[in-house]
Every structure is written in C-alpha cells, then in structure tokens.
C-alpha cells in the first residue's frame, strides 16, 4: 500500500525566492562572520587590536605621544584599583555593577564657589580632548593610554580658589557595599591623593571621563578620574567625589600606608629607586624586553621647572 503524504508545508516555511537565489552569498557571509568570531575567541587580543590600529583621536592634543597605543583590552583588564580588589583582574570583575549615575562632586575648602556639583555641571562647557599619555605604574610596568578629558585647570578656574589654596586634595568614593576592597583596611579609605597647586594647574594634568573616545569603564575610575602623566599611576585618583582646596600638604593614602616608599610627589624618576625595587626600567605592557624609564615619564620638558631647586631624592 502506498501512503502518500499530502503537501503540508505551510507557506511561512517556504523560503523567499530572493533569499533562495542569494543563498550562496548568504552562506558565504555567515561563514565569514563565524570564522571571524571563532578566530577572535581563539586569539582574544585580535578582537581588540582593531581599536588599537583603526582608532583615531577626534580632538587630538599637542601633548600626545605618537607611541603605539595599548589595546582597549589591556587597558581595561589590567588595573590597579584597590577599592575593587588587589589582583589586576579584580577591578574589571568587581566593578561591573558599580553605579556611576547619579554622580556628584563636592568642591570644598579655599574656593569662592564651594558646592556639590553634579557630574553634568562639572563637564558642562569643557572641551573634551583625546590625550594620549604614557602611564607608568610604581610597580614597574607602563602603558600608552588614549584618555578623553579636559584640563583640571579649567575646572579650578571656574571655582575660583582663594590665596589660601596651596594644595588640592582628591577623594575617591567611600562605599564598601559597592567597592568590596574597602571591606579590608589595607589602605586608608577613602583613597586620598593630592597635588600642589601648580601641579594641579599644569596643562598636562587632566580630569578624564573616557578612553578610546568612549565613556570611561568603571574599572578605570569612572565616571571621573585624575590623570597626572609624569607621576606614578597611583597619584591619579579614581572615581572622585570630593575635591578640596587646602593650605597644607594633604595626607595621601599610600603615604600613610608606607611613608618610606610612597612620597607625596611620587614623580616618575629612574634615578630614585623604590626601596624594594629599581625604577630604572619598566615593562611596557605588550613588550618582551624592558625599556628605560624616562625622567618625569618623558614629560621633563614640560614639568621639570616645577621642581627646580628641589632635592628629588628627598622629595620623592
């Protein structure tokens, strides 16, 4: 007996003729895309190297270095941000749900316009620049990072410091419910950093809100961080909630933790060793051999005059 099935394919299942005719092209595209994803997964660095090679600053600064950039991946997965843990991978892991909206910054102390400003107020009217800077960590590694930000001096001028303002103090958010690292007292929380007024006013000193032209990732100090490229990285305070203008040199977190090792100035200096290791060389992330560390991280022409006559061994 022959059982013949009736034609029961619903019309919705019938391939559109146009698609059918282009099926070879479709298959080709899908396979190319799959190949791309698979090879991207197999060699994760390639997935991100696109940023590095094709990204161009939209509003470059004359201070920019022409050195090769570190990849977005390197910059956002290898972080020292002890509020989120002490391993380099911790910040990317633990800052995922960090709340940066709403955000406000309290400006206090010796200024004519002290107030709590919203982040929007802080940024309003500022021209964002792509600042490609070297970053040298006190631990002996370095990166080249395309920050997006504006000169701190522009903000300082707006709030009108009085003659008593000799130093600027920066304070990171203190919220152990969001920042698990703050549950343990390996540093004095909240994280506090400081600059001398002339350092804060220097055109190289910026407040960053982004990198690679995009919004700053949480693990890099979102939504607002300091960048002082001639000093060791830890001076560049992250996730800032308070900026205080003061008369005396502020007590900074790392200095309080170990005053023999981390001075107030902490300028990058190959001639002044960390008591436990040499600062003469650094490993640029992505390179095999170490390179020589430059005086003031290569910004000597711009900043050396700030310290003329100072004994940099004493004022490390």
């Amino acid at each position: 007996m022959l059982i013949q099935k009736k034609n029961d394919i619903p019309s919705s299942q019938i391939t559109n003729e146009k698609l059918y005719l282009h099926r070879k092209e479709f298959i080709k595209n899908v396979s190319l895309a799959t190949l791309g994803i698979v090879s991207g997964i197999l060699s994760p660095k390639n997935l991100f190297s696109q940023d590095k090679n094709s990204w161009k600053p939209t509003n470059p600064s004359s201070y920019n270095t022409t050195e090769e950039l570190n990849s977005y991946k390197d910059i956002t997965t290898y972080n020292n941000f002890y509020e989120f843990g002490t391993d380099k991978s911790d910040p990317a892991e633990n800052a995922k749900n960090f709340k940066i909206k709403p955000w406000s910054v309290s400006i206090e102390g010796a200024v004519k316009k002290p107030a709590t400003y919203t982040l929007e107020d802080i940024i309003k009217g500022q021209t964002m620049e792509d600042r490609i800077y070297r970053l040298r960590c006190v631990e002996g590694w370095s990166m080249v990072i395309p920050w997006l930000g504006f000169p701190l001096a522009n903000l300082i001028k707006k709030v009108e410091p009085t003659s008593k303002a000799k130093y600027v103090e920066f304070i990171t958010l203190n919220d152990s419910s969001q920042m698990p690292g703050q549950k343990r007292p390996y540093l004095n929380w909240p994280y506090t950093e400081g600059l001398r007024m002339d350092e804060a006013m220097h055109p190289l000193t910026i407040l960053a809100t982004g990198l690679y032209g995009k919004i700053l990732p949480n693990q890099n100090g979102a939504p607002l961080r300091l960048v002082v490229p001639w000093k060791y990285g830890f001076k560049s305070c992250k996730s800032i909630v308070k900026i205080r203008f003061v008369e005396n040199e502020p007590k900074t977190s790392w200095n309080l933790a170990n005053s023999d090792e981390y001075g107030f100035y902490s300028n990058v200096n190959p001639e002044v060793d960390h008591p436990r290791w040499s600062q003469a060389r650094e490993r640029r992330i992505g390179e095999f051999f170490k390179r020589k560390t430059l005086m003031f991280n290569g910004y000597a022409d711009q900043v050396a005059s700030l310290y003329s006559g100072m004994d940099l061994k004493k004022n490390f």
Binding site: S43, P44, R283, I285, G286
Partner: peptide, 11 residues
C-alpha cells in the same frame, strides 16, 4: 600560548 594570561604575562 593561548594568550589567556593577563596583559602582563611575564609577571
């Protein structure tokens, strides 16, 4: 060899 260490594999 699979490039799944951190950005600073030698360390």
């Amino acid at each position: 060899f699979n490039d799944t260490l951190s950005a600073n594999p030698l360390d």
